[in-house]
Amino acid sequence: MNDLFSGSVFFGAFLSLLFYEAGLFCKRKWKHPLANPLLIAIALTIAFLVICRIDYGTYYEGAKYISYLLTPATVCLAVPLYEQISLLKKNARAILAGITAGVLTSVVLILILSLLFGLSHAEYVTLLPKSVTTAIGMAISEKLGGYPSLTAAVIIITGVCGSILAEPVCRLFHIKDPVAKGVGIGTASHAIGTSKAMEMGDVEGAMSGLSIAVAGVITVIMAAVFSGFY
């Protein structure tokens, strides 16, 4: 089927949105955290491509036009953040402390778990930036001697996990404040988590968007320091 679709600039984008719609349908029907539209869209798209023996390259010819909008969309995260500026000003220190604590938790846990699983140094630094946005994470991984493409993969898996676990984790830890929810989601699972936070509410989305940028910058420094520990 590869020949049938190769060269099409609409096939990949159409397929992605079609399966996302299917994911939204499942979410309406089941209301379970695992009925996550993004997870369903990814799983169905991969299954379809594998079963029909269609190359990722053929799919990406059309799908890249969806990815193209990612930078403009990230830029737009500034809009809800600006609209919540009074909340941001009032809680700036708590938010900054929360994000810093989150980044520290991330690198310490990765250090402990890497020791536990006996991972190599290269694997350890590959995982260090796993909670930040892809472009920052890949750059850190490359600089520290990790495998950037593996980092990108783990970052995406982390994001999807965060998007699925956002609501259950907030319940588990009894986090009720929308600012705190947003900070937690954005710090743990970057832009993919943020797209879930946007659904939860404007404040959650705005704070999650802020956390992507702040956690990203803090991780640049922390990962460099922690790369020397193992």
Partner: peptide
């Protein structure tokens, strides 16, 4: 935004 992550 969530859809934009599907290709990657």
């Amino acid at each position: 935004m969530p859809c934009l992550f599907i290709p990657a």
